[in-house]
């Protein structure tokens, strides 16, 4: 697998990680963790709309919404995440997926290879176990996107 298989924004993030040494990759993940956007108020007030990704070591909640895109060829999928500040690794990875996938079409998100997290070059530093949590996060997004595009069609 190479970054050619990835949507442009995600490919750029992966390239950024791969260009760094391991300590700097962790630093970059930390910066991502700080940039994870707050939930919009309509989700803050409705925690029942968020789904917990139980495979992650730290509590991570996730919601997806589809925005009608009258101008473009496909509807945009919007991603929303919530993870506590004491779980920076989980937040960092959620933020990578947010920046890399938010606003893309369902087909583009479903096309992301399941083992994409491995491309970030963090497995040694984070442990294979934690990487499985990251992979589970991507898997959960894809399952939700697949379910919602099935129900929409």
């Amino acid at each position: 697998m190479t970054t050619h298989d990835l949507p442009a924004a995600l490919a750029e993030i992966v390239d950024d990680f791969q260009a760094l040494t391991e300590p700097d990759r962790l630093q970059l993940l930390l910066e991502f963790s700080r940039e994870l956007p707050e939930l919009p108020d309509r989700l803050k007030d409705h925690p029942e709309l968020l789904e917990q990704v139980v495979e992650c070591q730290s509590p991570l909640f996730l919601a997806i919404e589809t925005e009608k895109n009258d101008a473009g060829p496909a509807d945009a999928v919007r991603l929303y995440f919530k993870a506590p500040p004491e779980a920076p690794t989980t937040r960092g990875f959620a933020s990578v997926l947010h920046e890399g996938l938010d606003g893309l079409s369902a087909a583009e998100i479903l096309g992301v290879p399941d083992d994409m997290p491995e491309l970030l070059g963090l497995t040694r530093a984070i442990t294979p176990l934690r990487m499985r949590g990251m992979t589970a996060m991507l898997g959960r997004i894809k399952r939700k996107v697949a379910a919602s595009s099935r129900s929409a069609s």
């Binding site: 962790l26 630093q27 993940l29 930390l30 963790s33 070591q57 730290s58 500040p85 004491e86 779980a87 920076p88 690794t89 989980t90 960092g92 040694r124 530093a125 984070i126 442990t127 934690r130």
Partner: peptide, 26 residues
């Protein structure tokens, strides 16, 4: 447990030891 938690803020003057990368054989 979280490999990045120390970097988000730690006791002044403290150092970090990571259970996985520092204490386990690779």
């Amino acid at each position: 447990e979280d490999v990045l938690l120390y970097e988000t803020g730690h006791i002044p003057g403290s150092v970090k030891i990571d259970w996985h990368t520092d204490l386990n054989d690779e």
